[in-house]
Amino acid sequence: MTCLLEARGLCVPAGEKWACRELDLCVRQGEKWGILGINGIGKTTLLHALCGLRQAQNGEIRLKGRLLSKMKRRDIARIAGILFQDSEDHFPATVLETTLIGRHPHISPWQWESIEDERIARESIKAVGLSGMETRRADTLSGGERRRLALATLLTQDPELYLLDEPTNHLDVRHQIEMLERLSLLAQNPGKALIMILHDPSLAARFCDRILLLFEDGHLLGSREDILTEANLSRLYHCRIASVEGPHGKIFFPA
């Protein structure tokens, strides 16, 4: 199977250091990737580089076989969508309006959102459990609700590749599991794949099938079983990590 997203010899600078060097990555349809690493290692920087929001120093990225650097932003936005760590609200907008902007790459500059676009947006709002809040102002929502609103916007964008920067941020335990289960289901749809940055190796063990670990001096990638080991994670986080077998896979904890 060909790669939905492919990186070859990718070097991405993050401040004075490197987020990654000589990274070769192939994300295929149906795959769920987890990226783990300590704070400030460059996970977000790498994620942004993978959809062209940031320039890579070296190497190339291909989206569905096309060179990312040669693609228009609009064309990229139809294939790859990203959930950012934080959202900004400087000017008032309702939940529905905020969700509708996800349709932007799909409609031409002079066109207005159609009834169909609004239907998609309302469905996304329902999917993240914000039904009934369509006319609420986005800046009156709680942190967790805003997180789900951002996801609703991404669902409305309906990309093939979902890039998720700490999707469980601000969410309580129930919503964390619900969010990740919803995303896992998404990845089962034909043509979809997702890459998410996570801080909890247990969630990564439960919801991801491929793992990328970012170390200070390199990276490690492969299948969940090969990569998510006590030894690798202890080296990654600079503290001893132990594990037990749980109902949904391994559960990791600081020992």
Partner: peptide, 14 residues
């Protein structure tokens, strides 16, 4: 108005 990064990710040539 909701941020350069979000705009870029939604296809705006920021």
């Amino acid at each position: 108005s909701k941020g350069d990064h979000l705009a870029g990710s939604l296809g705006v040539h920021v």
